[in-house]
């Protein structure tokens, strides 16, 4: 019995030490390491084949450089002040068929993590709907949720929570 235990221990410990393989993820830019920032705007390597439209997207004088939509508590409707921002990105997608985005919905940290994930999804979906109605193609947009897991501001109180109730617009390949 003791011998058997010893062998099991070695097998298990060596298994414990082995690297887990990175899974295949459908529909997302490849080559992103585990350490890549979710909340940032880096969705993969900026290689030499980078489309020219990125200069337009990152022009600080363009509304396209603005990438976040904020919400009221318990709300997922896009407020009037963010309408032009969302529609500008929608028109950009309409005019640049090869461009595509991922919309990440976020919530504050009150309540169930899974339910907040669903609420964040609703926020991202509301932006997506507005964009497709304005001419962007469905296939250009993936709406996902990060729920309460990636807060932009840490702590408690409305000034913190209001920054975390948002949808971020990330261009693929940027």
């Amino acid at each position: 019995m003791r011998k058997l235990l010893g062998i099991s221990l070695i097998v298990l410990l060596s298994a414990c030490a082995s690297q887990t393989t990175q899974p295949e993820v459908d529909d997302l830019t490849a080559g992103s390491g585990a350490g890549a920032g979710l909340g940032g705007s880096d969705l993969g390597g900026a290689g030499s084949g980078r489309p020219g439209y990125f200069s337009q997207l990152n022009d600080p004088n363009s509304i396209l450089s603005q990438r976040s939509v904020y919400y009221d508590y318990d709300s997922y409707s896009v407020k009037g002040e963010y309408r032009e921002l969302v529609l500008s990105h929608a028109r950009f997608l309409r005019d640049n068929a090869s461009a595509s985005i991922i919309l990440q919905g976020n919530t504050d940290d009150r309540g169930s993590r899974e339910y907040n994930l669903a609420l964040g999804q609703r926020r991202a979906d509301s932006v997506k709907n507005m964009m497709t109605l304005a001419g962007a193609r469905d296939a250009q947009i993936e709406s996902v949720s990060l729920g309460e897991e990636k807060p932009r501001a840490m702590g408690q109180g409305e000034s913190v929570w209001s920054q975390n109730r948002r949808t971020d617009i990330l261009y693929r390949g940027e």
Binding site: V25, L28, Q104, V144
Partner: peptide, 12 residues
Amino acid sequence: SFENKKPIVYVQ
């Protein structure tokens, strides 16, 4: 896990 910029379900 959120390691790929969105939630994905794994079985380990």
